[in-house]
């Protein structure tokens, strides 16, 4: 299956490190870009809490210093996911994925709510342990085929990639990102500051979509 996600439109090579765009990755890349721009220019919303049994309500206001930190982290997250979308190198992909994990923790780390803090900590533990299968998978890719370049893998001339390596890669990405598989990530989304929090779920979805393409290569 050489023609996986469409014909690559554009390939940019720096020796072994390469960047390429297919219709699939360019769609994902543009979406990451769009949301990064939203994060850049939008102010956070004020989340409304209702005091039950009365008409009273309160809004959670995000302080400027907290907002700056979270906006920075969200932009970093957007850049990392953009990188993961366009890279043509499996190890770079895992590095970007790990970076998305760190920035996801950072996005909610400044929230003062103990509930969210706890969720972020638990998420961080899982994300950190997920780097083991992630890097391990990439290393087995390199050991079995002698190459980390996705273009080379797609050509089909290299030895077959062992199933373990693919399973490790998917396991790592699921550990870094996918919300339904553990509740901590979904709990993080209760934090106020929608434009930033949404970056967490966007980046994990994008990376999951990309890893599907990566796994089907080679």
């Amino acid at each position: 299956m050489t023609n996986l996600a469409g014909v690559p439109y554009y390939i940019l090579e720096f020796g072994d490190e390469l960047v390429y765009f297919t219709p699939y990755t360019i769609t994902l890349f543009l979406l990451a870009l769009t949301f990064t721009i939203f994060v850049l220019i939008s102010m956070p919303e004020r989340q409304v809490d209702i005091a039950f049994g009365g008409d009273a309500y309160t809004t959670k206001v995000i302080s400027v210093s907290e907002m700056r930190f979270r906006r920075f982290m969200a932009i970093a997250c957007g850049l990392a996911s953009m990188g993961a979308m366009v890279t043509g190198d499996i190890f770079n992909f895992t590095l970007f994925t790990a970076m998305v994990g760190i920035t996801n923790v950072g996005i909610v780390a400044a929230v003062k709510s103990p509930h969210v803090q706890n969720a972020a900590y638990q998420y961080g533990l899982v994300a950190l342990s997920a780097t083991v299968p992630l890097f391990g998978g990439a290393a087995i890719y390199a050991a079995a085929t002698g190459s980390l370049s996705m273009i080379e893998l797609a050509k089909g001339a290299l030895p077959a990639v062992p199933f373990v390596a693919k399973a490790f890669l998917v396991l790592g990405v699921i550990g870094e990102g996918m919300a339904p598989f553990y509740a901590a990530k979904a709990e993080m989304f209760r934090a106020p500051g929608a434009p930033y929090v949404i970056m967490c779920s966007l980046s994990s979805l994008l990376i999951f979509l990309r890893v599907i393409e990566v796994v089907m290569l080679g």
Partner: peptide, 20 residues
């Protein structure tokens, strides 16, 4: 991919207003 990213749309709709 777009079908999955529709999740983001739902998420963005829900969170951006501040409504519980």
């Amino acid at each position: 991919g777009i079908y999955m990213l529709h999740k983001i749309v739902e998420h963005g709709f829900g969170l951006s207003s501040g409504s519980p």
